[in-house]
Simulated scan of single mutants.
Amino acid sequence: MTGRRRRVVSEAELALWTKVVESVKPMPGRRRAKAEPQPAAAPPEVPASEKPQAAPKRSSPPPKAATPVAPKPPPLAPLEPRMRRRLARGVVAVDARIDLHGLRQDEAHRRLASFLLGAQAGGARVVLVITGKGRPSAEGTLFGEERGVLRRSVPLWLSSPAARQVVIGYEEADPVHGGGGALYVRIRKAASKR
């Protein structure tokens, strides 16, 4: 077993280390260490006949272009408590409202997306989305109480990355505006085109 050869520090590395040592303040009770140059050891001479042949260079594949990472959608934020109280008391009016009662899921999704974009373009701050509470299932509770497909789906749609460009946040409406069957939705300001 052969011993590990010690690496020889180049003059450039030694100069860099000296600058680093000069810029560091020693701990209390310690002295600054001086960088001492190491004698450069000459590599052993190897006869030309024993030198290894250079391996043929392989052409490496071109570096892969970094795949563009989609920007992370902004996080959702609930209404401020003061705004919620003012909405419940009627001090601040809801800017717009949409009622999705009786619509199929695909139709409700299209109308909601169109409504939110229109509300954003119109400068609305808070809108009311009425989903309805849904009917209790008549079959019993074999799979649990099933209530309101739209009531469950609309929050998922509002949380989607596509909707986050329009929606700041949402939460269940106050009983004055429909309670569990409606949502207050905060609308993001439209990006100004310059």
Rank of each mutant, 00 (worst) to 15 (best):
A119E: 12
A108H: 00
R164E: 12
P155W: 05
K189R: 14
T131P: 13
L87I: 01
R86A: 06
V126Y: 05
A113K: 11
F143R: 15
L158A: 02
R164A: 01
E107P: 01
G178C: 10
K133C: 02
G148Q: 11
H101R: 08
Q105E: 15
V166D: 03
R89H: 11
V154W: 00
T141F: 08
R84V: 11
R164T: 03
R186N: 00
R110C: 05
V129H: 14
P136V: 10
L112E: 08
G140L: 04
Y170T: 11
V92N: 11
R147E: 04
A66D: 15
S192W: 01
I130C: 15
I98W: 11
I130N: 09
I98H: 15
R152Y: 07
A65W: 10
K72W: 10
A119F: 01
K64H: 02
D99R: 09
M83V: 03
A138Q: 14
A121Y: 05
L156R: 15
R125I: 02
R151V: 03
I168V: 04
S137N: 14
P136I: 05
A124R: 15
L76T: 13
Y170K: 11
G169H: 04
G180D: 12
Q105N: 05
G123I: 04
V126S: 09
T67V: 06
Q120W: 07
V126C: 13
Y184G: 00
L87P: 03
P78I: 09
L100A: 01
V92D: 12
R147C: 01
S192Q: 05
Y184T: 00
E171I: 01
A88M: 05
Q105I: 02
D99K: 08
P136A: 03
F143Q: 12
V91G: 05
R152G: 10
L116R: 04
R97C: 02
I187F: 11
E172Q: 15
P155K: 01
L116W: 08
D106Y: 03
E80C: 14
A108E: 03
G179D: 13
V167K: 09
P74A: 05
R104N: 07
G102C: 10
G122D: 08
M83A: 06
A77W: 06
R97S: 05
D106L: 06
K72T: 07
I187Q: 01
G181S: 12
P75T: 08
V69S: 09
G90V: 06
G144K: 10
